[in-house]
Structure formats: C-alpha cells, structure tokens
Amino acid sequence: MQKKSLLFLFVTLMLWACKPVQYPAITESPTEDYRYHEFVWHELGTANMTRASQFYSDLFGWEISEVSRADRDYRIITNNGKPIGGIIRIANGQKNQWVGVLSVEDATAKMNDATTNGANALVGTTSIPGRGTMAIMKDGQGAVYGIMHSQSGDPPRSRNENEWLWMELWSDNVDESVQHYQHTFGYEITEREDDGKPYWVMTTDDVPAMGVTKNPAENMTTQWIPYIKVSDPAAMAGRVRALGGDVILQPRDDIRNGTVAVVTDQDGAIFCLQKWDQ
C-alpha cells in the first residue's frame, strides 16, 4: 500500500515537472483587441543576458526578470509593471539586436505570404505556451522581424516614457522593402520629405505604423530600428555612454530639431531615443 502511494506520488510529481513552461502574455490583462500589422512587442537577442539586463534596467528603469527556472535563457521586460518586451539568448559571437514583432491574425498564413514576397523564415511558426504563435522572418533585404498572434490580444498603443514610440526600416533598397511590406501586410504608403530627405510612412487602418528611410548607416545593411520615447535625448545619450554603450549620433538641431539620438548598447544593438510631445 505504501509502495503504491509512493509510486502514485512519484508519477504525479513527474507529470507536474513536465508541464509546459508558461510564458507571460504580452498584455497586462487580456484585451481581446488586436492591432494587426502594427509592432506590438520587441525581443532583444543577446549572447549576454546579464549584461544586457543590467544595461537596460539602469538606462530606462525597466524591471527584467526570468520567467521560469526551466528556461533561464528568456527574460521578461516590464515598465512600471507592464510587459513591454523580452530578452532572449542567442548564440555566442553575435552582437545584440532588437527584433520588433508585428501582430497578425494568422502567423502561419502570414509567414507564407512573407516568404512568397521574398522573405525567409529564420524561425518557422512556433506555439509559445501562454503567449501565442510566432515566427521570425528575414526580409529580402536582410531585415529581421517577428510576427505573432497573441492569445491574450495586443497591448494598447503606448504614449509612456521609456516605451516603444516607433519602428523604422533603414533600407538599402527602399522600393523593394516597401513592396515586401506592402504586399505582405497591405500597408498604405505615404511619401514625406524633410529638408530634402525622403521618408515613407506605412499606415494600416489610417494608423501610422512605421517608417522607411534610405539606410543612413553607411557600413550596415538593411535593418529595423526601434525608437524609444524619452524626455531628454541628449541626457539619455550621455547615460548610454556612461553605462558602456555607444552614441552614434548626438541630437542635432538640423535633424528633427534635436529630438533624436542614435545609440547602441554595449553589445551593438542599435536603437534611437526620441522626444515626442504629441
């Protein structure tokens, strides 16, 4: 009898131990509201989880924590308790990179659309317990982005400081890039110009979702660049440098009236700091 009880206990514990890791949803609470074809989540790929966590928590005051003992290579980022992104370990030898994730209705169907329009699937459709279904794509120009159908809905648009403000594609071939995203996601394209420099805004359901510009980084190929809302880009750029990051472009009066800084973390991930009063 005692042996049977122990066996039952053992089997129960083993089944419990093998339960799937539940990852945090991308929303504070279920919204059941979707913002299809907008960037709704961001993942930082890094080979050095500890260093990246320290840098971003020191810079923005983000809270960064492990989600499970069973997966120490994934961390969740929250800002004032609100989930805003994740940090995921990538292979050694690669520099950090932020990957924006677009909300889609059907991840598999959209992955197929994207591949039809010249993208490759770096990671095919994957079901993430607690989160939803996602895939990681690389477009024909080499820019990496994610697609996800969140099972809890999408987070509302944020206007908070130290949170995502914008995504911008720095493209070596604007025509091909615009075609890929327009054909895959159905964006409307509006061309603007600032001081003679062309800029393309992609909108979905009349909402500006992202921008495209000619690649201003002379020695880098096409990639997506995230913008984070800050109140003082110059001061924040100084903090980036103090924390071991790099300032690629200080705010300048001739570029968006000094409201933008381009920086990297200590391991090379580019992101921009922008003051945005609207």
Binding site: Q94, G211, E218, N219, Q223, R256, T264
Partner: peptide
C-alpha cells in the same frame, strides 16, 4: 535568431545627409 553577416557587426557610421528619422 541568427543575424549572420548582414546583422549588426560593426560600429555604424551615420550619413547625416541621408538621415532624418524618427516618428512623424
């Protein structure tokens, strides 16, 4: 998530004659 040779591998050099980025 292998970014390969086209991923971030060098310190970016910005061409300010081209750049006028940020949210519109």
């Amino acid at each position: 998530m292998s970014f390969g040779p086209y991923g971030p591998s060098v310190r970016p050099v910005m061409n300010v004659g081209v750049y006028s980025g940020g949210r519109w």
